[in-house]
């Protein structure tokens, strides 16, 4: 096999290594005095911007009911098959509500498709990124864990109206 030559061979200064080494070391020395980027996590927490896709949650209206009308689109679109919805009828104006709404957080891939497809802005991605569970059963979030007051989701809802 013929030996392939480099496009540009090293010049004499580069072949001597030492000037290049000095350059590299100057760079690392400069970096030593730069401010560092570490966040001291448990004490200092990352406050995500509103474009952040954290744990998906259901929007809870001020009167205590969920916005969701249990159309099941989120469940259909979910590529990881993480969402399970069971619809039921209600006397309210929206006529339908989810009797059961479960997201398996071990399956969820935080793609945000459910949020995109939702016609009622009822399921949105929150800023919550601290997801810890001790067993698989705890990882299936029901309505009790998913419902979040609409006031706490203002940022995301505004973001969606602007950019969705």
């Amino acid at each position: 096999m013929p030996v392939q030559k480099r496009k540009e061979d090293l010049n004499i200064l580069e072949k001597l290594y030492i000037p290049e080494i000095v350059k590299g070391m100057a760079l690392t020395l400069k970096n030593m005095f730069r401010p560092n980027v570490t966040m001291q996590y448990p004490e200092v927490r990352f406050e995500p911007p509103s474009s952040y896709r954290g744990r998906p949650v259901l929007v809870q209206e001020k009167n205590g009911t969920e916005r969701c009308v249990a159309c099941g689109l989120c469940s259909r679109v979910c590529p990881a098959l993480a969402i399970e919805v069971q619809a039921s009828e209600t006397e309210l104006e929206k006529e339908r509500y989810p009797q059961k709404f479960e997201i398996n957080m071990l399956r969820c891939i935080f793609c945000g498709f459910c949020e995109e497809v939702c016609p009622e802005e009822a399921i949105v991605m929150s800023k919550d990124y601290e997801l810890v569970f001790k067993n698989r059963k705890d990882a299936i979030f029901g309505k009790d864990k998913l419902l979040v007051q609409v006031d706490n989701l203002k940022d995301r809802l505004e973001f969606l109206r602007k950019f969705k």
Binding site: T28, N31, M32, R34, N36, V37, T38, Q40
Partner: peptide, 10 residues
């Protein structure tokens, strides 16, 4: 420590 400083860590 030095490795951290070079890489902008703590």
């Amino acid at each position: 420590k030095i490795s951290a400083w070079v890489q902008n860590r703590v």
